[in-house]
Design a protein around this nucleic acid. Sequence first.
DNA 1: AGCACA
Length: 502
Amino acid sequence: MSTSGQHQFRYTQTPSKVLHLRNLPWECNEEELVELCKPFGKIVNTKCNVGANRNQAFVEFTDLNQAISMVSYFASSSEPAQVRGKTVYIQYSNRHEIVNNKSPGDVPGNVLLVTIEGVEAGDVSIDVIHLVFSAFGFVHKIATFEKAAGFQALIQFSDANIASEARNALDGRSIPRYLLPEHVGSCNLRISYSAHTDLNIKFQSHRSRDYTNPYLPVNPTAIEGVVQPALGPDGKKKEHESNVLLASIENMQYAVTVDVLHTVFSAFGTVQKIAIFEKNGQTQALIQYPDVTTASVAREALEGHCIYDGGYCKLHLSYSRHTDLNVKAYSDKSRDYTIPDSSQLAAQVPPTAWQNPQAAMYPGNEYTVTAAMQAQVAGGQVPSWDPNLQAGRQTFVSTPSTFPGQSYTAPPVPGYAPSALPTGSSPLTQTSPVAHGAASMGITRPGVSPNVNIHGSSSPAPGSSPLLQANPLSRNLVQPWSQLNVRPEGVSPPGHPPYYGQ
DNA sequence: AGCACA
């Protein structure tokens, strides 16, 4: 008489050693599942927090009879199966084994990866996140970031037990409404484990916090994402100064390598770090000085000037929002000069290492946030460039041998008066970066050129070591002068004589 | 309260 008489249930009930459990309480974890099921046999695998509501689970016994005994028992029992007082419905799974029980995000650790669904980054403050997660124990560090997956946060606890409690309690739940702006609708938390064990927070900011280190400097201007200065209401650039310069390189017909940039920008002070990246098809670079003053001088001096003569590689400089770059110490695209002997790493670092430098650290679903991680775990100090985007520009970055032969001129070295340079006295003088570079600078911005005005005409003798550092052909900045006479194959001498501007 | 994962 029932309509289901000749119908099977939508989900077949043929016995399987895998059982499907539903109506589980949201708190349910693996241990509770095992407690419920182990009287009937040995459990070889489980999967909990399944389904949209995370209230289903699978349990796999070693053999079919054990699963059958459990289903049979509760089918005839007056006491339903329960977890924490909640009735659990048990049936045979329509599969015969549990696959992929543990995704990387399920491997417990002391750091949680929290995705806050349905909100924009600005809707949930780091203080709210801190408040919510502090209910389970001392929160050591928080780093937030925004990616395709949504607004995410890494929450570091002292140990995996506390992290686990927080995850079990909060996964799938919402941040209380009263903690959120009114316009926010639902706001579900999706929580998995991060592979990280210790976040590297460099600044206290609205994006990242280290609660273990109250003396960590505050970086009030660290704003995620956009590197370029924001536009003010009047449409003019709102520039706040920074010790890090953002250089956009226009008309980049010639290679602009880390070494070239280091040479150019070192004229104004110690360059700490450099990172080159592509943005919207344009090459950009971040150059970090120890202080704002140095950066400011460099910016004023170099803005609008060309690295190479003929209008090539014109620099446009602005202040980055970043204050401390998190770059690979030695790669094609970045350099950290604050690390001793970084140049020695050259031979040891595979050329492709930078392309996915932290891949091993970001298994599974964290993969999608790698770029943001590099930025935000470091405290929001790095723009969210994707190193992988830099493929395909090898023509410009490989070696000096790819310079167009006849038109090569070397980059400038501000700080030495062009007039002090010898011309034609040696093969090298014609390629002198000082000569051409200074000329280029002088032409582009007469009177502002740092090489003339800042350091005056107190030039060193030709051939002294600063000149070496200017030569982009030099792969190694400490290369002895004599070695520079041996040009890399394929690099032609300059096609035009040195030009000395005023 | 009704089947994951790739």
